[in-house]
Design a protein around this nucleic acid. Structure first.
Lengths: 227, 227
DNA sequence: CATTCAAAACTGCAATAGCAGATGCCCGGC
DNA sequence: GCCGGGCATCTGCTATTGCAGTTTTGAATG
């Protein structure tokens, strides 16, 4: 731990959620934006001091990150940010694709009319952002679409897993500084996914979602996604 | 917390691993074997007292279980064993199928000759147990095969996720008290998976593994796996 | 200058204590 | 007999403290 990265400035305490959650988000942010570099040591005490908390919430956050593969811990030695080459990033993208597919499958099985309406709204937001060429809000709208879709499945394992995998996506895109991801094609794919869900066709929903996620991945990692 | 279930007898302390890991395994065992019934309250203090530890390791174990969906926590109220109907169990089985498929894909890409040899050994063990009709060791050998396959991918997210999902499989099989799962067919499917991995065919490996896991699931949940 | 070994500094890890919020119980009123 | 409010209890949650194992450092020795 050299000088305190910006991800480790003190934490606002006026929160009702467990501190470990805030610490977790801070650490994820630092790992994603690179201020906590791969291989860098993550000392419970140092982080706690920098964030103005005690060691325990930090410890819980590190455990969670360890379970998600973003942090590696040697039993009595310490934790460090996991080293990730493009192969690992592409791997995580593949896993994300299959989990997104599973989420779409579940959504097609269980979506209520309200759920479908919400997805329509998100899709409209994406369409607007695409027409205006507003890539920042397009990205947010895209994430909102996926998040809403995950919520339909109402499966805690899927929701948490996909949230964790999103970090890898951010890392990958930041590292290869991609890339518009062909917004119009992505829009069309989202529409097709939604249509499959509305048609209560789990098999098609999964297939479309998986292909969409994988194609989006292949924009960032053309090398590792051949075949 | 009424009377202490057998899963909550005191913990042996002569361990070098973090206590939270031991607590986690105990709680998983209790949830799987039903001694910690669905909906039952899980008080940090009570569990800690019963296990002879402090509250902190228990808390970490509960957080992990929460991330895996086995436990539900209301922010300042408390944790309880998640309620799981057959639909949820079948859902988790579907997710397990796609993750097992992803693991097989990775294995086909990265397996070393030593890895293939280890898988061969596990498969032989399964073959022996099948011929002798020894269902107990067959089950262990089956798990050993899958565990070895997961390890090949060397992906912490997959390894941890699949380990967590195994609990759901145990719960499901215990609840429907299935079922020999047609050992010979399972054996043939494992052999086909191994062949695909050895042939470096990720697509086939994933497809075979997914079909295998799903078919195995459909034995326990014929209702929820139609279509 | 390189090596080694011991001590100091640091680390994960667990236990204890205390606080604030949530739960449940009991008692008084309708 | 049923309902509601206040108090006791219990809960999650965080901080503080202390211990044991690890890593690093630095000096003495070859």
């Amino acid at each position: 731990m050299t000088l305190a990265p910006s991800a480790l400035r003190p934490l606002a305490t006026d929160d009702i959620r467990p501190l470990a959650d805030s610490v977790y988000e801070r650490l994820v942010g630092g790992i994603v934006d690179g201020s906590l570099p791969p291989g860098g040591k993550l000392s419970e005490r140092s982080i706690a001091a920098a964030l103005g908390t005690s060691a325990q919430p930090v410890r819980e956050a590190l455990r969670r990150l360890e379970g998600e593969g973003l942090v590696e811990t040697r039993p009595r030695s310490g934790s460090s940010v996991a080293l990730m080459d493009t192969r690992r990033l592409a791997e995580m993208g593949r896993i994300r694709a299959v989990l997104e597919g599973a989420a779409a499958d579940l959504a097609a099985r269980h979506a209520t009319p309200e759920d479908l309406q919400r997805l329509e709204q998100r899709l409209d937001a994406m369409r607007d952002a695409t027409e205006y060429g507003d890539t920042a809000t397009l990205r947010l709208a895209n994430e909102a679409f996926h998040t809403a879709l995950h919520a339909i499945g109402d499966n805690p394992f899927l929701i948490r897993g996909l949230q964790a995998l999103r970090a890898y996506d951010h890392i990958g895109r930041a590292r290869v500084l991609a890339s518009d991801d062909q917004p119009r094609q992505a829009l069309a794919e989202h529409a097709a996914i939604l249509a499959a869900i509305a048609a209560r066709d789990p098999e098609a929903a999964e297939r479309q979602m998986r292909a969409h996620t994988f194609r989006s991945l292949s924009v960032a990692f053309p090398e590792e996604t051949r075949g």
